[in-house]
Computed example of a mutant assay.
Amino acid sequence: MTQKDLAFEAGAATDRSLSRVGAAGAFLGLVVYFTSAVLHPDTPPHDTRAAFAHYADEPYWGIIHLAELLGALLMSASGLALSWRLRKGAACAWAALGGAAMIVFSAVYAVFAAVDGVGIGILVRRLAAAGPDNAVVFEAAYAVRQVEAGLFALQWFMFGLAAAMYTFAFISARSAGPWFSAMAVLSALASVGTLAFAVAQAQTGFTETSMAFQLGLYPGVLWVVAVGIFLLRSPVSEAQVWY
């Protein structure tokens, strides 16, 4: 075996390892995230007083939000693995920008988890303990709620930008095979849906309108699953084919 062959095999082994980790992050991240979402109190967030009362009764409020953060971090890891997978050729620059956007997404999500999972949790418990004379505590909790609403918009805005960057990456690599074109379409759908929700959330906060736009997040779920499958089926960047 020549030196070039040895180098190729070493690179391929690295690619396969990172792709497996990325695929595991995609699937496990979705499981963790949706399990914690099911455990999260389901009162509509725009029904503020009812939501605060429900949150105050949840004994595992902080743990639920740490689990949601873990799920988001695992999904971000799948995005970084995808950036590595697409690092060569014309797709490289777009993939790098997509990976950077995923890092910002997870960083904003961490701040969101702190505000929602810790700050809001403490305030709603104080609100419940204050009894009828709780106007000041309610206004404090409501103010923090608006910070949470802004972070919620920003995190999904960054996710949508990441999906857009991956769209261009897959388009740039479309000559590698039909599955790259399919991934470009899925990435575009995830980007449009998520960005639409982010804009609605940023414009209106927690409202019936923004909650209706949450349907736009579901293409993102499909995209994460597709990323996991893509990394398993086409793990090596040197071989730009689906196999």
Rank of each mutant, 00 (worst) to 15 (best):
P44S: 07
Y218P: 00
A129L: 06
Q214F: 08
D116H: 13
L186M: 14
A188S: 13
V111F: 09
A56F: 09
H65S: 01
L161K: 10
L189M: 13
F213V: 04
A140K: 09
M102D: 15
A90C: 13
A23P: 12
S76F: 06
A164P: 04
A77Y: 09
H54Y: 09
A114P: 12
V21N: 01
G29H: 01
A95Y: 07
A13I: 06
A13H: 10
G11R: 11
A226P: 00
L70K: 00
A130P: 00
A200R: 07
W84R: 11
V108D: 10
A23T: 03
I229C: 02
G89E: 04
V21K: 03
D5E: 11
M75V: 06
D15A: 02
A93Y: 05
E139S: 12
S181F: 06
M211R: 09
A10M: 13
S17L: 09
M158H: 13
S210K: 05
A149T: 02
R85F: 06
A96R: 13
M1N: 09
V236Q: 12
L86K: 03
A113P: 10
W179D: 09
V227Y: 00
V185G: 06
A129E: 11
A72Q: 12
S210T: 02
G205Q: 04
F159K: 14
G193Q: 03
A141S: 06
G150Q: 05
S83A: 14
I122G: 05
A26V: 01
A96K: 14
R126C: 07
C92D: 15
Y243R: 14
P44G: 10
L232G: 01
W223H: 01
P235R: 03
A113I: 00
A67G: 12
P59M: 04
V108N: 08
G216A: 01
Y109P: 14
A26Y: 00
V108K: 06
Y109T: 13
M211F: 09
S175M: 05
M75H: 02
G121M: 00
L215Q: 06
Y218E: 02
A153P: 08
G71S: 03
L66F: 15
S237R: 15
I63E: 07
A93S: 14
S191N: 06
F168T: 01
V108T: 14
E208Y: 10
D15W: 05
F157R: 13
R20G: 03
F230Q: 01
F157I: 14
A110P: 01
G205W: 04
L161W: 15
M102W: 15
A24H: 04
G160Y: 05
K88I: 11
P178C: 05
